[in-house]
């Protein structure tokens, strides 16, 4: 199969919250573009700044982190994640990268509309 030439969007979801949320989008038979790749993690707080920069340099056009926000079941994880994304933005700016290619948002198990909205927004960013 030939390489997909469309820009790729990586969606980082949490096992307990946004991953079931992404499933809910499927269960409702809603649709979004197939250039979106969902991976699940216990919590995105585990990724260092370099993880995002490396992915965005090596072929991923945009990343959406779908966290559980202040409803995160892990103590202290959300503020740490938010701070880490801020410092990733600083590093991205220093590298002349468009910081809109990395978005942090909050998605729960039933946020189907917000899920689709975030993907549609990122599609616009990566198409530009």
């Amino acid at each position: 199969m030939t390489k997909d030439s469309r820009p790729k969007i990586l969606v980082i979801t949490t096992s307990h919250s946004s991953y079931p949320g992404a499933n809910a989008v499927g269960q409702a038979r809603l649709a979004y573009d197939s250039n979106t790749y969902i991976i699940r993690v216990p919590d995105p707080v585990m990724f260092p700044e370099e993880f995002y920069i490396k992915a965005l340099t090596n072929g991923i056009a945009g990343i959406i982190i779908m966290s559980s926000g202040s409803d995160c079941p892990y103590e202290g994880a959300y503020p740490r994640l938010a701070a880490r994304i801020q410092s990733t933005y600083t590093k991205m700016k220093a590298l002349n990268m468009n910081i809109n290619r990395l978005k942090i948002t909050t998605i729960c198990t039933v946020c189907t509309e917000s899920f689709l909205k975030e993907i549609a927004n990122m599609e616009k960013v990566v198409a530009a």
């Binding site: 997909d4 499933n23 269960q27 809603l30 649709a31 979004y32 573009d33 197939s34 790749y37």
Partner: peptide
């Protein structure tokens, strides 16, 4: 399924490509 075939019904090639990836 929930994150490919069910959400990319109009794009069979794209869904197949995504599944492979």
């Amino acid at each position: 399924r929930e994150q490919a075939s069910w959400v990319h019904k109009q794009d069979k090639d794209g869904a197949t490509h995504k599944a492979i990836a």
